[in-house]
């Protein structure tokens, strides 16, 4: 009945050593303190938390950018080990990432065509013509045009750049996409377009999302399950409906209460109180 688990984390920990000057003893910071979760195929897990809670560190571990200090990462049933060497081509192709800041995640000196064909060039044996065709097709899928192929990133707006970043992530046909705050740098109207695009792509490619965000209203829109992180720990992990209806952990409650809401009744009350 339930879909297969494509991504599983078992007690993942990540420590950093921070050097504090020449004479102070180096300090060990526990950025992620033993996080476990499973994501089934086609589902979206949202990881919510504030800055410094370890959610971006976790994202880097899930996308094989940094190794975990301990714990197991299991992708498609295989335990992944990258501490000893670079991940294989097959593994690369399975997990990809979209970063928060579309102004930083595209190389300013690289044309869009090159951005999109680079993954294929590095990981497949496709010919230049095939790579070009695939990139063109992907441009269209994310709502851009073939003539954008030869342009540089600075000619695009933030939303368009995020589309390009999404297209790059999809070039290798991944099964899992880690989205690290993909819409928090965007304007409201553009945010809506990108969220729609992500929802469409999820259905079309059967993608599994790990959606990292601090914005609860966005999470409420896109997630199936929500995991709340606080100081490196997952304090609550339940289905979206449950967690929004009845948050259990005190931190989750604080977070929900702090989120400003454009709710007419609340505004009316506030206006009355002021007058």
């Amino acid at each position: 009945m339930s879909a297969p688990v494509v991504l599983e984390a078992r007690d993942i920990k990540r420590d950093y050593v921070v050097n504090r000057g020449l004479f102070a003893k180096p300090k060990i910071v526990h950025a992620v303190k033993g996080v476990s979760f499973k994501v089934e195929k086609g589902r979206t897990l949202a990881i919510v938390g504030e800055s410094g809670c370890g959610k971006s560190t976790l994202a880097r571990i899930l996308t094989l950018i940094d190794p975990q200090t301990s714990g197991d990462l299991i992708i498609d049933g295989n335990t992944v080990e990258i501490a000893s060497g670079r991940p294989s081509r097959e593994l690369r192709a399975k997990v990809q990432i979209v970063f928060q800041n579309p102004y930083g995640s595209l190389n300013p000196r690289q044309k869009i065509g090159s951005v999109l064909t680079e993954p294929l060039q590095l990981n497949t044996d496709k010919s230049a013509a095939e790579r070009r065709d695939l990139a063109m097709a992907m441009l269209q899928k994310v709502g851009l045009q073939p003539e954008h192929y030869n342009r540089y990133p600075h000619m695009f707006s933030g939303g368009q750049r995020q589309r390009i970043a999404i297209a790059r992530a999809l070039m290798l046909n991944p099964s899992i996409l880690v989205l690290d705050e993909p819409v928090s740098a965007l304007d409201l109207s553009v945010q809506a377009q990108i969220l729609n695009l992500l929802a469409d792509l999820r259905d079309e490619f059967g993608l599994t999302y790990v959606f990292i965000s601090h914005d609860l209203s966005v999470v409420r829109f896109i997630a199936d399950e929500v995991m709340v992180m606080y100081f490196g720990e997952a304090v609550e992990h339940r289905s979206k409906a449950e967690i929004f209806a009845d948050p259990q952990h005190p931190y989750t409650r604080t977070l929900f209460a702090a989120t400003p809401r454009a709710d007419v009744e609340t505004i009316r009350k506030r206006v009355m109180a002021r007058a």
Binding site: Q96, R109, E118, M171
Partner: peptide
Amino acid sequence: ERDYVTAARVVGAGPLRLMVVTILPN
């Protein structure tokens, strides 16, 4: 440290490519 370098790593660029093709032009 910029994201585009990490992004190039995620799609599989090796150290030499990162140095010469990705970083140097910038």
